[in-house]
């Protein structure tokens, strides 16, 4: 899955909800009768997966926001994992 093209537009899967939970100091992914507490990098990536931005734009935004470079491989690997777990889906 690391061959995901830069142009895909990942989005939170239908029926799931991502939100910031102050009580847990984390982004939390909510799904039927379950939840996953995300670590800060996963939260930063997932919160940018709005189905409008491409993978390349998400990487650029993260690099800009955190003043880092060379994040593409890590972001792509996480998005691939999240797709496999059905946390994310791809939009046209």
């Amino acid at each position: 899955m690391s061959d995901l093209p830069d142009t895909v537009k990942p989005a939170i899967s239908q029926g799931l909800k991502l939100q910031w939970e102050p009580a847990q100091d984390a982004h939390v992914l909510l799904y039927p009768e379950g939840m996953v507490k995300l670590n800060s990098s996963a939260g930063a990536i997932m919160s940018r997966c709005d189905g409008a931005r491409t993978l390349a734009e998400i990487v650029a935004d993260l690099e800009h926001s955190y003043g880092l470079s060379g994040l593409a491989a890590d972001v792509r690997a996480f998005v691939a994992l999240a797709l496999q777990k059905h946390w994310l889906e791809l939009r046209e």
Binding site: A23, Q24, E33, G34, M35, V36, K37
Partner: peptide, 18 residues
């Protein structure tokens, strides 16, 4: 209705009722 929560332990100082 029974949660299969990933949250870990029952600590003496409890977290919130998630």
């Amino acid at each position: 209705a029974v949660p299969a929560s990933p949250v870990q332990t029952a600590a003496p100082s409890p977290g919130p009722p998630l």
